[in-house]
């Protein structure tokens, strides 16, 4: 009887460990000089986006695998009024990056939709004609690991030759001038 109870108890614990890790504990927000937590994103289906990020095949990839010297990551949500209002300016940043020799091919831009499903990210992308890759974070797991930042939030990350990375920018809120923001990013990423 006692033995059976122990087995039952063990089964309940196994269920918890194997099938549910419980609420994902919110991490702390990475700061300048630190590193992002392990973030895995799906390789884009869009061949243009795959080329832009220097990826191939399918499955998941890490930020450090993006073919770039540095990456700007916008944490956004289709449900966020500021992200909606500033979408045009972030698009402008991307266009400028593609036109600026110091940035093109070296500095890349991606967005991660906090709590947004692939469908919801698609709505945002289509509504605002977003030209750069956006990724879904439907279960908020990435958002939680980044300390549940408010949106929009921007991270700048330097990619090192060994695939590791270092945060050089971590700030809440958008920007008023895409060119000024780009110049600041280039300087902080030491690409100027």
């Amino acid at each position: 009887m006692k033995k059976a109870f122990i087995y039952q108890l063990a089964a309940v614990f196994m269920f918890v460990l194997v099938f549910d890790s419980g609420p994902v504990a919110a991490g702390s927000t990475p700061k300048k000089g630190g590193a992002l937590p392990e973030i895995s994103l799906s390789v884009p289906k869009d061949p243009g986006h795959r080329d832009y990020l220097g990826l191939s095949g399918q499955g998941l990839f890490r930020i450090g695998q993006i073919k770039a010297k540095a990456v700007i990551i916008e944490i956004f949500s289709m449900y966020c009024p500021h992200c909606q209002g500033e979408a045009f300016r972030v698009n402008e940043l991307y266009e400028l990056m593609e036109k600026t020799s110091n940035a093109k091919g070296k500095l890349k831009l991606i967005g991660i939709g906090a709590g947004n499903s692939a469908f919801e990210v698609g709505i945002f992308k289509e509504t605002y004609k977003v030209p750069f890759p956006l990724f879904a974070d439907g279960d908020f797991s990435i958002h939680k690991s980044l300390g549940e930042v408010r949106t929009p939030y921007f991270f700048g990350v330097k990619i090192k030759d060994d695939g590791t990375h270092e945060v050089f920018y971590s700030k809440l809120g958008g920007f008023n001038n895409a060119d000024e923001f780009l110049q600041m990013m280039l300087k902080l990423a030491e690409l100027d």
Binding site: Y79, P152, L172
Partner: peptide, 8 residues
């Protein structure tokens, strides 16, 4: 509970 809060 999970939510992404807009800075708005």
């Amino acid at each position: 509970s999970a939510f992404g809060l807009s800075d708005a």
